[in-house]
């Protein structure tokens, strides 16, 4: 075995994956070559350093474990509903025709917001929601959003329920959920680079209505399963408050 072969085969040697003959040849070469021996020793030390650093960070899986346990131990019908809901949401774009929606000028982010709302709000897929207002305000601040948004965007007759970060069409949005006796409404907020203002556009996407607009540097989407006029009213109210 030659020196250039050593770095190539080192991952297999370190993982114990070399066959017996090649492992023996590898070991023979190391015995006679201080440079390769040194290189491999450094590689092993580096591996140990990386492993120790990453493994030293605690990992709390209690929330995920509990959500999974809740689902797998649930009665079969309820469990099926969870799967069915997830599958339905994933198939949502296909069933309503993504390209048909796009041909009508519906934006990808509006479609993504409708899908997200369907999964997380209408179908109650388990997610790590934050209900504490201070924590949500801190999250808003991290996203360069006005911390007063949670209170100021609360539509008349609604109250703040929960929030979290979510990812729509390539960007992070703060997802705020407001509720009243008639149901829930979601507001998705993102700070954008370009200062602009646009009118409110309302689209029906499957069972959801999505009202989208930009005001200043704040891009906003309001999603609800209530009638389209309700979505428009909520969006108008949000636009006025912004």
């Amino acid at each position: 075995m030659t020196c250039p072969e050593i770095p190539e085969l080192a991952p297999l040697y370190l993982a114990g994956e070399l066959d017996a003959a090649r492992a023996a040849a590898f070991a023979d070469h190391l015995r006679g070559c201080p440079a390769c021996r040194q290189e491999l020793a450094e590689e092993s030390a580096f591996d140990k350093r990386l492993r120790s650093a990453i493994l030293s960070q605690p990992v709390d899986t209690s929330a995920v474990d509990q959500r999974i346990r809740d689902i797998i131990h649930a009665p079969a019908q309820y469990r099926w509903n969870h799967f069915a809901a997830g599958i339905a949401a994933l198939l949502l774009l296909a069933s309503v025709g993504y390209f048909e929606l796009r041909s009508r000028g519906v934006s990808p982010v509006a479609i993504a917001a409708a899908t997200d709302y369907r999964m997380e709000i209408a179908d109650h897929q388990p997610r790590p929601w934050i209900t504490n207002r201070d924590a949500i305000e801190a999250l808003a601040s991290k996203q360069s959003l006005p911390v007063s948004a949670i209170s100021s965007l609360t539509p008349a007759g609604y109250h703040f329920v929960k929030g979290k970060l979510c990812y729509l069409d390539g960007n992070w949005y703060l997802h705020l959920v407001y509720g009243n006796a008639l149901g829930d409404a979601s507001v998705y907020l993102r700070r954008v680079d370009l200062f602009a203002s646009s009118g409110i556009r309302v689209d029906k996407i499957a069972a959801e209505h999505v009202a989208a607009f930009q005001h200043g540097r704040l891009s906003t989407l309001v999603v609800t399963s209530q009638p389209g006029e309700a979505a428009r009213r909520l969006a108008e109210s949000a636009a006025a408050l912004i």
């Binding site: 899986t61 929330a63 995920v64 959500r67 999974i68 689902i71 969870h82 799967f83 997830g86 388990p126 997610r127 790590p128 970060l165 990812y167």
Partner: peptide, 11 residues
């Protein structure tokens, strides 16, 4: 996002 990913994976 990591928790969502692991949850999706386990489901």
């Amino acid at each position: 996002s990591a928790e969502d990913l692991v949850q999706d994976c386990l489901l």
